[in-house]
């Protein structure tokens, strides 16, 4: 982002040097403001989602949930974080300590970087010409996949470096699961990319002016959500940390804020998948009311999808490993391929 400014200041090539930083995203100070606002805002939502999840799980299971710290238990996440910060980050004797230190960093960095492509508002909604997204890149969807696939290394290295069999089995499951579902999640979005004729999330949202893509691409939406559950290792796809079998899977040996980082990365990932689903299938910032309401519509739809994540967690039991593989390869993959094929034929014909 600073590259463009430096280039124009030096009077060199007018083209931005790093193509990721397209000039449409605004001047440097706007980008900084956007980055800080999105980052801080989402990071404040994470504890609230955590609290909401625990309270809702309580309701689903006919109990109260945390209600002691603060009014209605609202301060519970703060207490949890304080507890985590004060705990020791121990390393087993068989571990590779430096790798255990960087694994949570990889997880949380990739999760936060993916946040950048979620579009929150129409270009010019709050004045200026730039889109209300961290960045608007022509490879939008691929950016999402790229960081999604790097985030796997956080889990993998964390599990492997722990030097514990439970951790190792957990990370192996994570690897197999991610490889299996990445194909389906990619194909499920291909239909939308073909219909909208672009990979940029801002342009995809703009293409939903008349009709949200959830209507013509309902199959794609279903596949994306199921595969999204699997990608974020949330129940019922939480085999990498299946607590009945693997203690806590890849993060068994992590303590303190290292564990907290993994935990937070998982919740940010849930928010990112919700945000991408909102942008791609649920019309993004489109909604009744004036244009400046756009970001709030995005947020509302995101939180509705987060509620769906929690609801599914409370409702469905964990899949068995062979069921997981069967679902991924024998049901979702053919279905997604068929969806792409039908969409391609329709796009050409219509």
């Amino acid at each position: 982002m600073t590259a463009a400014a430096l280039a124009s200041a030096a009077g060199a090539a007018p083209l931005p040097l790093v193509p990721l930083a397209l000039s449409e995203t605004g001047p440097v100070w706007v980008q900084l403001v956007k980055a800080v606002v999105i980052f801080v805002f989402i990071l404040q939502i994470v504890p609230m989602v955590l609290w909401a999840e625990r309270r809702l799980l309580g309701r689903f299971q006919a109990r109260l949930g945390p209600n002691r710290v603060g009014p209605a238990g609202l301060m519970q996440p703060l207490a949890d974080v304080l507890k985590l910060v004060s705990k020791e980050a121990s390393t087993p004797a068989t571990a590779v300590p430096w790798m255990m230190a960087i694994a949570p960093v990889i997880s949380i960095t990739t999760a936060v970087l993916t946040l950048a492509i979620i579009p929150f508002g129409a270009p010019g909604a709050y004045g200026g010409e730039f889109a209300l997204a961290g960045i608007d890149v022509s490879i939008g969807l691929l950016y999402f996949f790229a960081f999604g696939s790097i985030s796997f290394y956080g889990l993998m290295l964390g599990g492997w470096a722990s030097g514990s069999k439970y951790s190792f089995l957990g990370s192996m499951r994570a690897a197999a699961q991610l490889v299996s579902y990445e194909v389906a999640i990619g194909l499920s979005l291909l239909g939308v990319a073909m219909t909208a004729g672009s990979l940029s999330l801002v342009e995809i949202v703009q293409a939903q002016d008349n009709i949200w893509f959830i209507v013509p691409q309902f199959v794609g939406f279903l596949i994306f959500m199921v595969a999204g559950f699997a990608e974020s290792s949330r129940p019922p796809f939480d085999l990498p940390e299946a607590d009945a079998e693997l203690v806590s899977g890849y993060n068994t040996e992590f303590g303190g804020m290292r564990f907290g980082s993994f935990f937070m990365a998982e919740y940010i990932e849930v928010l990112v998948i919700s945000g991408v689903a909102v942008a791609i299938f649920l019309g993004g910032w489109h909604g009744p009311g004036p244009e400046w309401l756009g970001p709030w519509w995005v947020l509302l739809k995101m939180l509705a999808l987060v509620f769906l994540f929690i609801w599914v967690r409370a409702t469905l039991p964990r899949l068995r490993y062979d069921q997981l593989m069967t679902l991924g390869w024998k049901i979702l993959l053919p279905l997604a391929t068929l969806n792409v094929l039908v969409t391609a034929i329709l796009v050409v014909l219509l």
């Binding site: 999604g148 790097i150 690897a175 990445e182």
Partner: peptide
């Protein structure tokens, strides 16, 4: 993403 995950695996 894909190829190296299999290698690591």
């Amino acid at each position: 993403g894909a190829v190296m995950v299999l290698y690591v695996f």
